[in-house]
């Protein structure tokens, strides 16, 4: 029973964090850009939301402001990379580290509780209670997670099917071709970074409200969690190739990651060891497909050798 409850919480967390994983997916996979802004922009999302809510701005509006703030963070990384010609990884790290100070400035302190304030989670919970539907906060979070994941996937699916979206996808494949087809690759990267970090800040906003607090340290390792979701999704749903299904795979990967975490915590692992565990999961998920294909190739070679010998 206790574990089932933990799974419910895991699904809720997985859905909320999958918005971050989707943002990471855009840069890492679609654009082939190693964007390290994530840890910073995620926290920015939570901090902006917290400070908005504390100052009496409606939570749903706070969410939109966070989205905007994340977009600006992405734009800064894009500017550093495009205009100052700083390598992509370093550009992201510079934004990330400067966001640490900026997030402290936004919040005015290291963390901000939201327990006594309204969030979209409490609002929905109260709304449902009024019509006689009493749901646990995890179930409410699952509903909200599903709503936002659906919106994000639909919007991204639409956008990356448009003319601009198509040329952004092509940029991740082949920059030389994109320039030969008359598109400035600086612009395409810029747009993709803005969209990706908007998603990531949205995730930060949602997670902050769900946890009932924003903390300037909450984004540490967020990038690895996003990556874990992406690779778990890819390992489990290896055969999907369509863009829409790949995004769904990322969401599933995010939920599975959270269930794994819930499981090992139940088994008595200390939360302090979680980051290490996450890194090991990512390393394994990246290593296993390679190991399997190498093993298969070896098998095929042995089989071929035996057939030649028998013949």
């Amino acid at each position: 029973m206790q574990f089932l409850l933990a799974v419910e919480g895991a699904i809720a967390q997985g859905l909320l964090w999958s918005v971050l994983a989707l943002g990471s997916y855009l840069t890492f996979r679609l654009l082939n850009f190693t964007d390290m802004t994530v840890d910073g922009s995620f926290t920015t999302g939570a901090c902006v939301t917290a400070i908005c809510i504390v100052n009496g701005i409606p939570p749903i509006l706070a969410l939109l402001v966070s989205l905007l703030a994340g977009g600006i963070a992405g734009a800064i990384t894009g500017f550093l990379h495009n205009k100052l010609e700083i390598p992509e990884v370093l550009a992201g790290i510079l934004t990330q580290i400067s966001l640490y100070s900026i997030n402290l400035r936004i919040l005015g302190r290291a963390n901000q509780q939201l327990l006594q304030y309204d969030t979209i989670f409490k609002q929905l919970q109260n709304l449902l209670a009024e019509i006689g539907l009493k749901l646990s906060s995890d179930r409410v979070a699952i509903i909200i997670g599903l709503i936002f994941v659906t919106i994000v996937i639909v919007v991204l699916y639409w956008f990356f099917g448009t003319e601009i979206g198509s040329i952004i996808r092509a940029t991740g494949n082949n920059e030389a071709m994109v320039r030969a087809l008359g598109q400035n690759t600086e612009n395409t990267k810029f747009i993709a970074l803005i969209i990706a970090n908007s998603c990531i800040a949205l995730a930060g906003s949602l997670v902050g409200m769900y946890q009932g607090a924003a903390d300037v340290g909450m984004g540490a390792g967020a990038i690895v969690i996003g990556l874990a979701s992406i690779v778990i999704g890819e390992v489990i749903l290896r055969r999907v190739i369509a863009f829409g299904s790949k995004m769904v795979a990322v969401v599933i990967g995010s939920i599975i990651y959270r269930i794994i975490v819930a499981l090992v915590l139940q088994l008595g692992l200390s939360t302090n060891d979680l980051k290490l565990l996450t890194a090991i999961i990512v390393a394994l998920a990246l290593f296993l497909p390679n190991a399997v294909s190498k093993h298969n190739a070896k098998k095929a070679r042995e089989l071929a050798a035996r057939e030649t010998r028998d013949a």
Partner: peptide, 20 residues
């Protein structure tokens, strides 16, 4: 088809209409 559609728009302004 997507590749051809990208090339079909070579040197043109790309907007938010569907890519193909």
């Amino acid at each position: 088809a997507e590749n051809l559609a990208l090339a079909f728009r070579r040197g043109k302004r790309r907007g938010l209409s569907w890519g193909i």
